[in-house]
Design a protein around this nucleic acid. Structure first.
Lengths: 137, 137
DNA sequence: TTACTTGCAAATGCTTTGCGAGCCG
DNA sequence: CGGCTCGCAAAGCATTTGCAAGTAA
């Protein structure tokens, strides 16, 4: 499990009880997928009845600013989070189940950069999402 | 200008006054960019004071269902629309000005499809957005 | 003390919807 | 008549924020 708590603490974020619990919750939930705020809130709430959803919103925003988690807006309307990983990756979303699969493809990355340059831009960020249906065998 | 009105009519959508005006507004606005619902509403309202924003929402949804316009959710929180074009393209968004530049790259398209297949999926849809800063000369 | 953090409820911004009235075939 | 369509206001949903109380340094 990625030590989200350590990253935040090392970067100077004051770690309160709520923040520690929320950090743990995200770390755990990240193992299974890309949780949204409500999912994080519900699991954190199980651990500590004193956590409010407002705090979860404030906290994920902080964690994101501190570079400890990443926010994604897939086409389902709500923000989803995951812990940062050392290697960059993109996402394939199963349109039937909502399951998210991570992948990376250097060739595509490279082509994106070249494309941006060709248009007169330096690539700052990008978003690549594939939406697919599972091939039955 | 793309005949959005004709597409809808030909496909069996009853074209009321409001729908015609909204269609014209989108066609015109599409020449300059990717308007959001409020921009469409304001311009349509100038032409006919009787148009409500609820109708604009209902209408863009209809146009989208009828395959006459496309919806995009860039990272600015609100849905933006553009008329459909025969050739597929992706978007580069200028993070300073918000300007949207269209581009297409067959090589990237191809690689996306291969990637999806490799993961066991048929590609149904995708989203590729580049966010960049203009290179100063 | 002084600055940060929190829970609660209210407010926000975008979008959808219920309803009664109007329109068209 | 019967089914769409409309404007309006109210509701929905995810997210943000003001405020007063609580906490930590």
């Amino acid at each position: 499990m990625i030590d989200l708590k350590k990253i935040c603490k090392d970067r100077g974020l004051r770690m309160t009880d709520q923040r520690n619990i929320i950090a743990d919750t995200i770390s755990e939930a990240s193992l299974e997928g890309h949780p949204d705020v409500n999912q994080i809130y519900l699991k954190a709430f199980e651990k500590d009845k004193n956590i409010s959803i407002a705090t979860v919103y404030r906290t994920v925003k902080l964690f994101e600013e501190y570079g400890a988690i990443e926010k994604h807006d897939f086409k389902d309307g709500k923000a989803r989070y995951e812990t940062v990983t050392d290697i960059h990756h993109d996402h394939l979303i199963d349109i039937d189940s909502g399951e998210v699969i991570e992948f990376s493809n250097d060739e595509i990355e490279e082509l994106q950069m070249i494309m941006a340059k060709k248009l007169g831009y330096n690539l700052v960020d990008h978003r690549l999402e594939l939406y697919g249906k599972k091939i039955k065998k």
